[in-house]
């Protein structure tokens, strides 16, 4: 990102992100990733702003936001733990691990399903705050969630 966004209101931030990507329609996914990076989700107000910048329809922008699993339409929990539920992690108990860890979690933490982190030889794996962790058991996962790992 070429510009320091922190001091700008949301609408301006979004326009700057679009401009930083040349207002190019084919950069829509990159733009949405950038917006989500500072806003944690794509607010409804963003659709028309982005559509105007990229010369797309509001429906087209909405269509892309809703198609891809990464883009959130609502503010997420403070901490998101993406626990892999693909076959290799399943073979090492990730389904039960998810069920166990979900018990007694407060609303600050969300356990989400992700399909494959490419760490299949060290299953079960999870993605937390941009880092991938392997060979996880319930204790280590709890520690990660509690931020004490």
């Amino acid at each position: 990102m070429a510009t320091n966004l922190d001091i700008y209101p949301l609408e301006s931030k979004i326009k700057l992100v679009c401009a930083d990507h040349g207002n190019a329609a084919d950069m829509l996914l990159e733009i949405l990733h950038a917006v989500q990076a500072f806003n944690r989700y794509i607010p409804e107000s963003a659709y028309q702003i982005i559509a105007d910048c990229l010369n797309l329809s509001r429906a087209e922008v909405y269509g892309v936001v809703t198609f891809y699993h990464d883009f959130r339409q609502k503010p997420p929990a403070k901490k998101i733990v993406k626990l892999c539920q693909s076959e290799a992690c399943q073979s090492m108990g990730s389904v039960q691990l998810k069920a166990d860890i979900e018990k007694g979690l407060n609303s600050d933490v969300a356990i989400e399903t992700i399909y494959c982190l490419g760490n299949c030889a060290l299953a079960p794996s999870a993605l937390v705050d941009g880092q991938i962790y392997g060979r996880l058991d319930a204790d280590q996962l709890s520690a990660l969630i509690g931020g004490t790992a």
Binding site: A24, A25, D26, M27, L28, L29, E30, L32, H33, L54, E60, G63, V64, F67, Y68, H69, D70, F71, I114, Y115
Partner: peptide, 24 residues
């Protein structure tokens, strides 16, 4: 370029649409 969590974008034509900034 980076995808956004859609498995189907591993299918070559879906990937091309995604590269064009569209639904895959």
């Amino acid at each position: 370029r980076i995808g956004a969590g859609a498995y189907i974008c591993g299918e070559e034509t879906s990937l091309l649409d995604s590269l064009e900034g569209k639904r895959g």
